[in-house]
Design a protein around this nucleic acid. Structure first.
Lengths: 175, 175
DNA sequence: TGCTAACCGGAGACACAGTCCGGTACCGTG
DNA sequence: CACGGTACCGGACTGTGTCTCCGGTTAGCA
């Protein structure tokens, strides 16, 4: 990658962070480009879709979550591990307004796309399966993962509500 | 209302039903107007917002749900009544793709708006409160109502998933 | 230093929600 | 029945945002 390209990439990620924090992940891409001092064509070249930009912005956070998930896969208490992962993922989903919707609509429903979020949810699915003996029999792992996305979506701007909804889900998962 | 206005209103509702069934409630309003043989200005005059059109299309269904809810308020088994309402509302939320999102984003988050859906959810909130002695203490009624919306949102096009998620919620509500 | 391909800027195409003004249709009254 | 007035109409137009594409520029390599 050329120096100017790298510079523009970094500027875009930086301005996207600010814009997402201000008005959610649905912030205008043109506006982000303008703030970064690049043309909109440049933004699309680096980030063909909005999710690409989102994931670039959240790369560190998602990477950390995937790592956490992998560590939890080695934990003894499967339910506790699952709880920790669910909570961490829920908190992640609340990072920016609209993030849960963007991810659920793009990453999970486009089975052709391999994304960071898809990897994150794979780990989660594995944690659900591993807890299989201590949760309600027949629980579909993907259901649980989607429930977290749904809770994040329904409780945007309200971490307390998110926590309460998570408690409902956890209670519902118990045998 | 004049005869031509009534005619146009009915045409719009009819075409909206078809368009929503085809491509969800996010179908282009211009396209619906075109299909109804009226100008887009006419559509907006009758239905200032998309939710107005949605509710006109679903007036009968929502009315029936509100009636059901009121009947359930008189039922002896509060948990059973709540379960019935939650399921009926969830099924309603799956009527059209995107309906849950449209409703949750518009009706519940705009506290200034009195809509059919707001009334539906009021009844639900009341049913949750009424079941207070048989569900987890401290359960926030609005949390539960929003969970239904969230489940509908996360399980679009997949009634089986919706049912499983509802089961998780119900299990989570039990003491 | 010169060449070339990676990369850029930004005008423009496209889609859609929503507005507004001159024209038309309907309905009520005489 | 005819007329007048207002409810209602059509559709051109505006605004916003996503996305494309072509001529111009820059960076990196030989």
């Amino acid at each position: 990658m050329r120096a100017d390209a790298r510079r523009n990439y970094e500027r875009l990620v930086e301005q996207a962070k600010l814009a997402f924090a201000e008005s959610g992940v649905d912030a205008s891409l043109d506006e982000i480009a303008r703030r970064a001092g690049v043309a909109s064509g440049t933004l699309y070249r680096h980030f063909p879709t909005r999710l690409d930009l989102i994931e670039a912005v959240l790369a560190d956070q998602i990477g950390g979550l995937v790592d956490l998930g992998k560590r939890l896969l080695a934990a003894d208490d499967a339910f506790e591990a699952l709880t920790t992962w669910l909570r961490a993922t829920l908190v992640h989903g609340l990072t920016y307004r609209g993030l849960a919707a963007a991810v659920m609509n793009s990453a999970l429903d486009s089975e052709l796309v391999s994304t960071w979020h898809a990897r994150l949810f794979e780990v989660g699915t594995e944690l659900v399966r591993r807890a299989g003996e201590v949760i309600v029999p027949g629980t579909d792992a993907e259901d649980v993962v989607r429930m977290i996305g749904a809770i994040a979506w329904a409780s945007q701007d309200n971490p307390d509500r998110a926590e309460r909804m998570l408690a409902l889900l956890l209670n519902g998962l118990r045998r």
